[in-house]
Structures are given as structure tokens and as C-alpha cells.
């Protein structure tokens, strides 16, 4: 409801620059493949990506991540639904979107017979960038992605990591406000991946670029993303910040607490805690109590222990495995 009102407002404000809270938003975006449209790649996807945030789009292979990205930059036309990137319609204003965005697709190929500079120069020409600005920008970009040394080398001789970073530079050639990165770290070693992630984070910080990245690694997304959407089989399962995801997890799975108590025997303490409302399970591990609660019952437990005369020397929530959560969510749905 709310969404629809906003979208009509956007319709009325077509004149550039369109300012809006959201860099990307979709409404019931759907896409099917196959002769009979039997393969539903994306189903009724509703997304809102705020300006300046790093948005992670995760899901298993074939979940519809790439299809969504393609629809967002106009490479594919949605069967149903609509979308806007930087206020431009993803069907009718594709070129405007591409002018404003950069994308590192997966797989990404470049002209192996050309040098890094020649490659970037070619892409730059597509944006009509003045030659002197263009050359400077090419050098800066390659410097940024750490390829300054390879500026006159042919792309054909680049390693996978270098290619990925070059791909990032390529996506930035038009100084985009939105960056689509399709699995930016796939195929590179952990060190390279780390470097890439730092690069993305820095870009987001320094230039305020909205980043929409897809990944199948929760860890990666957790590290750099402000918000995350999980997609599977074309359906959006969860969307929110890491913390929000955690809450959902807690809600769903309850919370594991670790307790160390003094001046009270573990068995006694266990008894008291067991009687507290909301505690599902309890086990004693050495000198630590591990309990599983349905909800946040910290205060209740603290009160009960105190009443019993014990002192809590440690009371921690057990670290949540988001990857596990992610898998769980996907399995569930």
C-alpha cells in the first residue's frame, strides 16, 4: 500500500535529478524462463535498497540473484512487476540506469588483446568522457583497485584476482552512484577476497556509492553489508540488517546462553534456571551452564540466581552462526 503511493509520486517527478530515499526498489518483480515460462527465476520480489548502503543479496546458486541484477540494469525484462533504480524505470529507462550505475557481472570478460588502459578507454568512450578527464580517471581507478602497475599490460595476462579488481574499475568508469557486483569474490583466494571486500567497503565509505552485491557466502555479506536479503528459488525469504536477522533467528530458534555461577552449585543453579519461564533446555558443561531459551530471559535468570544467593560471573549469549542460519532459512522455506 505504502509502496504504491511512493511509486506514483515517483512517476510524477520524472525530471532529473530524482531524489529518493531508495537507490533501488522493486515491486512484485517476477521473471520466468522456458518455453512455457515454467522455470520461475524470480517471484514477486519486493526490495528497497537505501541510498549509500551496502546491500547484500544472498542465496544459493540458481536462486535468482543474477536474474534480479540483470532485470535491475535492463538486461532482462521482467514478466511482471516493476522496479526503479535511482528513480529510473528498469524497463523504459534502461540507458539512464546504465548511465548512473556500474556493474561487475559474473562471469566478466574483457578484451584480452588490449591493455588495461585500452580496455577502460573503450568503456569510457561509451560515456563520452573527455579524453583528458578519461585518462586521468583511468589511472586513478587502476590505482584505487591496485592495478596501477599493470596499466599497460594486456588483460590476457591478468590473474583471476586482478581480473576481478579490473572488473570493479570497469564498473566505476562512469563514476556510478549505484554499483552492482555479482559475486565479486568468487574464484579468488581468501586474501584476494579480503582485499576486494575492503575495496568495496572503502568505496562505499569514501564515495557514498550504493552497493548491491550478490554472494552465496553469508560471511562475506555479514562483513561488509549494512542490510541483507536472502533469496532462494526466486523468492525473497528475509530482508533486513544483520541485527534484525539475528532477532529473527532468536525468535525462531531461541537463544543459547552460557552461564558461570559462583557461590552456588551448578546443580542448584540448574534447578533454579530450569524453573524459570521460557527455558527450553539446560546442560552442564564442566563448570559452565549452557541453556536454550525461547526468548530473552536474561533479567529473569539474573533475578532468580541472585535470589538464590549466587553470583553470576559470566552470562553470555552464544555466538550465532549466520551461515547456519542462512542454510536453515533456506532449508525451511
Amino acid at each position: 500500500m505504502n509502496m504504491e503511493i511512493r511509486s506514483t509520486e515517483l512517476e510524477q517527478n520524472k525530471i532529473k535529478p530524482r531524489t529518493d530515499e531508495f537507490a533501488i526498489e522493486t515491486l512484485n518483480l517476477s521473471k520466468s524462463f522456458g518455453k512455457e515460462k515454467e522455470i520461475r527465476a524470480v517471484k514477486n520480489l519486493n526490495l528497497q535498497v537505501k541510498k549509500g548502503e551496502v546491500f547484500g543479496f544472498i542465496g544459493p546458486n540458481g536462486a535468482g540473484k543474477t536474474t534480479t541484477m540483470k532485470m535491475l540494469i535492463g538486461l532482462l525484462e521482467p514478466d511482471e512487476g516493476s522496479g526503479k533504480v535511482e528513480g529510473f524505470d528498469i524497463v523504459r529507462e534502461v540507458i539512464n540506469i546504465r548511465e548512473q550505475t556500474g556493474m561487475l557481472p559474473e562471469p566478466a570478460g574483457f578484451y584480452d588483446n588490449l591493455t588495461a588502459r585500452q580496455n577502460l578507454r573503450f568503456y569510457a568512450k561509451l560515456y563520452n568522457i573527455e579524453p583528458d578527464i578519461r585518462e586521468k580517471r583511468i589511472e586513478n581507478l587502476l590505482e584505487t583497485v591496485g592495478l596501477a602497475h599493470a596499466i599497460e599490460q594486456k588483460i590476457g595476462g591478468f590473474s583471476t584476482g586482478m581480473r576481478k579488481r579490473f572488473g570493479l574499475a570497469q564498473a566505476l568508469i562512469n563514476e556510478p552512484s549505484v554499483l552492482f557486483l555479482d559475486e565479486p569474490t568468487s574464484g579468488i583466494d581468501p586474501l584476494g577476497a579480503q582485499r576486494m571486500r575492503k575495496l568495496i567497503k572503502d568505496l562505499n565509505k569514501s564515495k557514498g556509492v550504493t552497493v548491491f552485491l550478490s554472494s552465496h557466502s553469508m560471511e562475506e555479506v555479514e562483513e561488509i553489508c549494512d542490510r541483507i536479503a536472502i533469496i532462494s528459488k526466486g523468492k525473497l525469504l528475509v530482508i533486513g540488517s544483520i541485527e534484525e536477522l539475528r532477532d529473527i533467528f532468536r525468535e525462531k530458534e531461541g537463544i543459547h546462553y552460557l552461564l558461570e555461577i559462583q557461590e552456588l552449585s551448578l546443580t542448584e543453579a540448574a534447578k533454579i534456571i530450569k524453573n524459570t519461564e521460557g527455558v527450553n533446555a539446560l546442560e552442564i558443561q564442566d563448570r559452565t551452564l549452557r541453556l536454550h531459551a525461547k526468548m530473552n530471559i536474561r533479567t529473569e535468570i539474573a533475578k532468580a540466581i541472585k535470589k538464590a544467593g549466587g553470583t553470576i560471573s559470566m552470562f553470555e549469549e552464544e555466538a550465532m552462526n549466520l551461515q547456519k542460519l542462512f542454510l536453515k532459512i533456506i532449508e525451511e522455506k
Binding site: 540494469i73 538486461l75 540507458i95 546504465r98 548511465e99 550505475t101 556500474g102 556493474m103 557481472p105 562471469p107 566478466a108 570478460g109 574483457f110 578484451y111 584480452d112 568503456y123 561509451l126 560515456y127 572488473g167 570497469q170 564498473a171 562512469n174 552492482f180
Partner: peptide, 17 residues
Amino acid sequence: REQKSGSLNVLLTHPLF
């Protein structure tokens, strides 16, 4: 050649039909 190398993939993300 372009399709095979994936350069078409990249090219298409730039503002051209």
C-alpha cells in the same frame, strides 16, 4: 568471440542498446 570471452556480458552493462 565476444560472447565466448564474456566481454559482451560486460559491454551490455554499459549504456548502449
